[in-house]
Nucleic acid binder design. Sequence first.
DNA 1: GCGACAG
DNA 2: ATCTTGTCGC
Length: 234
Amino acid sequence: MMPSNQWQRARQTRSELVIPPGLVQTWITQQHEVATRMTELPYPGLPRFVAAADAAFSLDGKMCVAVAVVWDREKTELVEHVVARRPLEFPYVPTFLSFREGAALQDAIAMLKHAWEVICFDGQGFAHPRRCGIATHISVMLDRPGIGVGKSRLCGQARDPGLKAGAWSPLIHRQQQVGIALRTRDGVKPLFVSVGHRMDIASARRIVLACGRGYRLPEPIRIADRITKVERAK
DNA sequence: GCGACAG
DNA sequence: ATCTTGTCGC
């Protein structure tokens, strides 16, 4: 049967993966339901143990390789990292990233033995058309504080923040602030930070900056990203 | 109908 | 995300 959506047709040639007819509608329903359960509240102080989760593909492109780490912000050192693998079932379709990578990421997070207080994700949280990016989706499932850290924008518009590290500007989507564009390093492209769950944007900004070690990405995500590229070869 | 579109 | 060469700047 021919794919019904243009984006599905465009992607399947390269990915070989197809989304069964009707599944997208149930995904949209799930996202609305999960968004309903998200809570926004200030996170007091700064967490000592910050987790992060990131994913990559195996070299043959058939597996999702997920890495979760726990980083000690006070000692600025990695205390744990774990790896989980799952077959890729769906192609990448904008706004449905969590259905492609979410299961593997949750497997990895569940493997962590060390305690953590906040978790950072590579992708949007509230800054999503249905306010349910991967950071919100997984954080709500875990019912733990989470932050979305995107390297690029999914939706909304933001003025370019000042050039100095720490500068930021609100990210607005449909008259609503959904996150911020945050300059984490002088002169480099800003990050798009948004709330995942049990968090507010001021706290998220504070925490992301507190995890910075002079690079664009906060250290826990940068470390997870690096491990991910080593593990995909195995 | 057209353009935009996390990883 | 992944592929992929040289190039610019500290």
